[in-house]
Design a protein around this nucleic acid. Structure first.
Lengths: 208, 208
DNA sequence: TTGTCAACTGTCAGTGGCTGTCACTAGCCT
DNA sequence: AGGCTAGTGACAGCCACTGACAGTTGACAA
């Protein structure tokens, strides 16, 4: 049971978040000031900073939820599954259940729009890549534990995750610049690209 | 022949750069203000911004040189060479000639210290990853042209470069956190990790 | 119900990165 | 020698962000 105070807090936070994402995606991240966001929710600028560590933090609040869900999905994969297979399946699962993960806070449609804004805003892209790097470090440790190897002595967990992350970034980039913003197209792209990594590494592109 | 004005400009720029890197690496990036850098060179804060787009720009000025050299090295590789091989050789070449590339502006030792500061400063790490992403895009186009494929239709150039970039990041991270700061250790790590990508992808880590 | 405490919020002042403007100086060129 | 212009300093201002302090509102016990 949620107390009145907690309810108010949650409402303020979600109102700020929605206002921020709405403004970011319509008029641009850099063009949006904290004052505007606070004004849209009718709170002081200071209050915004009590809910979010900064402008960037608001932009990534929803991403953080989906990333967390992804890591949890990898942890939940059957232990006998091969590492790359586990990552692949968990990732596809994540996109399958994204509506349930996100909709309780903001509309999925808004989240997807924000996703694209991140890719096209240099400052946010930088933050996104750093966050991804942190997630990759977590995943490397998860995989290492699954396989019973030492993550600091054996480079393979980090290498596998780095390759996976690289493919995801190529997918993200393609999806963000394409016309088809459907969820299904992300899943399909990811699966296709993961299948093609092998042939991309062997350098006989001209003969195929 | 360089005119007096040009000489003065170059001196001011290099003095600012050296002062900036020195301060960043000794007392930390966030702890260093632009005023401090300007004061160390005895110019106004405004002048700093006439030479560098921002604090970040100064931190990456030397990195930009080495990245450019790396891309040029890839372009200079014999056309018959396989893509991954070309990237590998160009990268190793880059570290072989880094002294010549860098020393004309700042001491290599300072550059290497800055390299490590970047990895341990969140804001700089983010910027570094975004810059790397931009370089990877360039490289993908170079490789696509070499191999005569369309970079937007065929995902393999971007995939190959993404995998290569991922391995490089694992290498960077390892090197920055290790004790051995020698140039030779970077080359060796890179070569080793590139060789291990294959076995990292096939998931039988427990049996080896 | 009422009083007390703690949580939440607004206001204000200040720092640091960054930009525009404008007047001034110093190197360049005829 | 004198005009032109690149380079500079000084100043004012915007915005993200932080600390300090006071006011308000919900929680809880007497």
């Amino acid at each position: 049971m949620e107390t009145l105070r907690e309810r108010k807090k949650r409402r303020t936070r979600e109102a700020l978040l929605r206002a921020a994402l709405e403004l970011f995606t319509t008029q641009g991240y850099e063009q949006t000031t904290i004052d505007e966001i606070a004004e849209a929710v009718d709170v002081s600028q200071r209050t915004f900073f009590r809910y979010f560590a900064g402008k960037e933090d608001a932009a990534f609040a929803v991403q953080a939820m989906t990333e967390e869900a992804f890591v949890a999905a990898v942890r939940a994969r059957p232990p006998h599954e091969a590492p790359m297979k586990a990552l692949r399946q968990a990732f596809l699962e994540g996109w399958d259940t994204i509506r349930e993960t996100v909709e309780s806070v903001v509309p999925v449609e808004l989240h997807l729009r924000m996703y694209r804004s991140i890719e096209s805003t240099p400052a946010l892209l930088a933050a996104h890549l750093r966050r991804s790097a942190a997630t990759e470090e977590t995943l490397a440790r998860v995989l290492a534990e699954r396989e019973g190897v030492d993550v600091d002595a054996d480079p393979r967990p980090r290498l596998a995750v780095a390759v996976f992350g690289g493919v995801i970034r190529v997918t993200e980039r393609h999806w963000c610049t394409s016309e088809d913003f459907g969820l299904e197209s992300i899943r399909m792209l990811t699966a296709t690209y993961l299948d093609q990594v092998g042939s991309a590494l062997t350098g006989n592109w001209r003969t195929s």
